[in-house]
């Protein structure tokens, strides 16, 4: 008896996966997907608002993540130029500077030296900061001689020795100060990792927000269609049949939200690209701005759709079961 029942179920399952069922299934999905999109279009205000909320919630963490990526990229370039800048006192003769640089060149701890005259310094400053006109107000060039020192690999890998070298250079006669930009570097480094973490945290919270918002939107949709759901159940509609258009509605909200988020990211990117480019140049860094790639567009659309479906599911699980014909 038991065996017979088992065989019967097997048969039914097999029948469910026949090609004809597959065609019917695909056709139903296509129809339901299209009609739920048409329904969203019939309520432009509601749809527009929901899509906007989803778009903003997706765009914000994306922008933060891009910023962190930009910072990390810039940092890796700056990291390659971990120079010690030795600033001489004002008015020191060029011969003395050259002589000193030559002597340092023989130090095993130093890989290379480069003398930067006040005029060269002025050029660089003008070029990178865009503040050259301020300096034009000075009668004399206010910049000192600078020797840019590239420490040897050996020293670079040992922070204590590097520190000693900087101190020794700093103590030399006629030297105003020797500065290693490590502090600044560390600060930037931790800032970048902070923004990185922040974007994930914010992303997580906003994803939760999207789930709740879409869940609520779908709940309202269920309320609006209560009568229709009852009739469908009365004429033999399965839970799946009732559920399907609602899940599709969630999918469309999420997908459209994701695409709109990509648009937002592109617009914000355009707005900040100019000033950002200038900022980066001033740090002697030439990091390319991230373009809105197809990969990003796809990712946003995908995550939007995923969240949309999930939000709709949560809502459907909570609310649909209670609607039964009375």
């Amino acid at each position: 008896m038991n065996r017979r029942v088992k065989n019967k179920t097997k048969f039914v399952r097999l029948a469910e996966f026949s090609p004809l069922r597959l065609v019917v299934w695909a056709r139903n999905h296509f129809k339901v997907g299209r009609s739920s999109l048409v329904r969203l279009r019939a309520e432009p205000l509601q749809t527009g608002l929901t899509v906007c909320v989803v778009a903003i919630a997706l765009a914000l963490p994306t922008l933060l993540l891009q910023l962190a990526g930009l910072g990390a990229n810039a940092l890796s370039q700056i990291g390659e130029t971990s120079d010690i800048n030795v600033y001489f006192d004002l008015g020191v003769q060029s011969e003395i500077v050259e002589e000193r640089a030559q002597a340092w060149q023989n130090d095993s701890r130093i890989a290379s030296t480069e003398v930067i005259s006040p005029n060269q310094g002025l050029d660089e400053f003008e070029q990178f900061s865009g503040l050259g006109s301020i300096l034009a107000g000075f009668e004399e060039n206010p910049l000192p001689y600078v020797v840019r020192i590239q420490p040897s690999e050996q020293v670079l890998s040992r922070p204590a020795e590097l520190q000693l070298l900087v101190q020794a250079l700093d103590a030399e006669e006629r030297v105003d100060s020797a500065i290693l930009d490590l502090v600044w570097l560390n600060r930037l480094n931790s800032m970048v990792s902070f923004v990185d973490r922040l974007s994930y945290g914010v992303g997580f919270l906003l994803a939760l927000g999207i789930l709740l918002i879409l869940g609520n939107t779908i709940r309202l949709t269920i309320e609006n269609r209560r009568e229709e759901i009852v009739v469908i159940k009365l004429v033999g509609g399965t839970d799946r049949f009732v559920r399907r258009p609602l899940i599709y509605a969630g999918l469309w909200y999420g997908l459209l939200g994701g695409l709109a988020a990509a648009l937002l990211v592109a617009i914000v990117g355009l707005l900040i690209s100019m000033p950002l480019q200038r900022l980066l140049v001033s740090y002697q860094s030439s990091v390319a701005l991230p373009d809105l790639s197809f990969a990003l567009l796809f990712k946003l659309a995908f995550y939007g759709a995923l969240l949309g479906c999930a939000g709709a599911w949560i809502s459907v699980l909570q609310h649909l079961r209670n609607i039964e014909p009375q």
């Binding site: 009568e227 229709e228 009852v230 009739v231 159940k233 009365l234 004429v235 033999g236 509609g237 399965t238 839970d239 049949f241």
Partner: peptide, 22 residues
């Protein structure tokens, strides 16, 4: 069972007093 109910109803046609049209 909950799963079987829709398939049971598909074998029945119902007419309501309030016709329940959409």
């Amino acid at each position: 069972g909950r799963q079987g109910i829709p398939y049971h109803r598909r074998r029945i046609g119902v007419v309501f007093q309030n016709h329940s049209l959409l």
